[in-house]
Design a protein around this nucleic acid. Sequence first.
RNA 1: CGGGGCGUGGCCCAGCCCGGUUAAGGCGCCUGUUUUGGGAACAGGAGAUCGCAGGUUCGAAUCCUGCCGCCCCGACCA
Length: 490
Amino acid sequence: MASKLTSRDDDYSKWYNELVVQADLAQHSDVKGCMVIKPYGFAIWERMKDVLDGMFKDTGHVNAYFPLFIPKSYLSKEAAHVEGFAKECAVVTHYRLKNDPNGEGVVVDPDARLEEELIVRPTSETIIWNTYKNWIQSYRDLPLLVNQWANVVRWEMRTRLFLRTAEFLWQEGHTAHATKDEAVEEAKKMLEVYADFAENYMAMPVVKGVKTETERFAGAEDTYCIEALMQDGKALQAGTSHFLGQNFAKAFDVTFADKEGGKSHVWATSWGVSTRLMGALIMTHSDDQGLVLPPKLAPIEVVIVPIYKGQDQMDEIVAKCQEVADELKAAGIRVKLDDDDTKRSGWKFAEYELKGVPLRIAMGPRDLAKGTCELARRDTKTKDFVSLDGLAAHVRTQLDDIQASLTASVHERIKTHTHVVDTWEGFLEALDKGGFVSAHWDGTAETEERIKQETKATIRCIPYDGDTTSGTCIKTGAPSARRVLFAKAY
RNA sequence: CGGGGCGUGGCCCAGCCCGGUUAAGGCGCCUGUUUUGGGAACAGGAGAUCGCAGGUUCGAAUCCUGCCGCCCCGACCA
C-alpha cells in the first residue's frame, strides 16, 4: 500500500488503473476481462444500488429476476437487436464435463451437447419479452414496471476495470405500456432519475440528451442518455434509457386487449446503469493522493483515528473516540472508529486518504485535555481543530459542504470545458483542449462517421437544453437544425 | 484481430544477453524489543516444483522449439 500513485498529469490512464487496485476497489481476475470487486469497492456499489433501488421503487417499479441464459433463437427475433449484440456473446454449448480419458483433469463431454445453444445474457430484452407475452393480456395488466439487478456478459475485445469488463453488474428496467406517449414518458422519466442520482448522490452533474441514430441502442427507437465529463476531458456515457417502440412487442407477439376490445401491441422501454458508474465516480473526483468520494455514497463518511502512546493512554483515548463514534452514529452518520493497534496513525491517515473517506477525525492526548479533535477534509486537504461540543452537527455541515463543493466543481468543469465552435478549425482546436464541443451537424450518419474517423470524436448526444438555433454543419457546410454535443469518449 | 510488454514466495521485482554450489532484494506475514500527533526501527523467522510441455547439456530461471495466460496501445463497444 506504500507505493505512490502515478500522477494524473503523467498518465491519466495509468493513474486510474493503479487507483482502482491500490484503493482496494477491484482487481483483475485470472479470467480475461473479468474483475473481482473487492469488499470496499462493493460497499460503494451497494450504496449506489440501495439509493437507485429506492428511487426505482419510488417511481412505481418492482424488482424481479430473469434467467442468466437465453435460448439462441430468442436473440434473433429482433433483427437490429441481434445485429448489435451477436459479436460479443458468450455461448453455452454443453452441460457436462467428464474425466479426461487421457488422465489429465476434466474435458467437455461431447455427448452432452445442448440441442439449442444458450447465450449468456448480454442484456435481457429478449427473454423478458418472451416472458411478458404471458403476463400481459389486457390493458389492466399495464403498465408493467419491472426492474432487475443482475450480471450480464459482453465479450469485449478490450476491457478496463469498471469502465468496460466482460462481465458487469447492472440493473435493467423493462417496462410495458398501453400507449406510445406513456412509454416515451417513462423512458424520459427514468433518465431524469439517473440524472438526479448522478448529480445529487455521485456529485457528478451530467448532460441529458438523445442519441443520434447511429449511437442508439440496438432495437431502440430512441435512446436517451446522460453524459458525464471526466477530468481528462473525455466523456463517459453514464446511463441510458430507451424507448423501444413496439419492436420487441412485435418480435415476441405481446399484445393486449384495450378497453374497446381491440388488440394492440404494447409499447416498451428499457433502461440501465452499471458498475461503470463506479469508474465514473472514481474518475470524476479523485486526485493524485487517491480516491475522493462524495459523502452520500461513501461507505465510511467519517473515520476516527485515535492517537496515543502506551496502553493506558490508548484505553482512555479509544473510550473517548468510541463516545464520539456513538454520537455521530446516532446522528445518522456512517462512521468507523479505527482502533486497530497494529497500524500506526500515520499509516491510517494515508490509507483513508487513498480510500477517499470524506472526513477524518484524529484525537490524541492534547485533544482529550482540551475537549477538541482534529477534523481533516479529504477534498480540500484542510485540517481544523474543533470542539467536541456540537461535533455531530458540525460534521453534518462539513459533509454537506463537501458534497456541495464536489458537485459545484464538476458543474464548473462542464461549463469551462464545453466549447462552442462554428468552424472545422475551431472544432479541431476545441477537441485538443478536451471536453464537450457544441457544434452544428448536418444530421447525416455519413458526416457523423467522417468526423469520427478523422477525429475520434463522436456525437455524445443531442442535448435537451442545447442551442436550438439553426446554422451550418462544421464539416459539410450543409444546413443544420441545431447544435449537438461532440466529444472523445470512453 | 494487429502492435508492444510481462509471467520468478501473498505482492513488486533482480538475475537471463554471457548456463555452474543454498535464486538476490523490497513490501507484506510471524516472534520479540523499543516506538507511536503523517505510511516506525532493530533482531530473528516462515514462505519458490522460476507460467506449461518438450529439447540441447555433465548441469537450465538462464539456450532452442512449441503452447498457455495476463496486461498495455489500437480497431469494436455500455
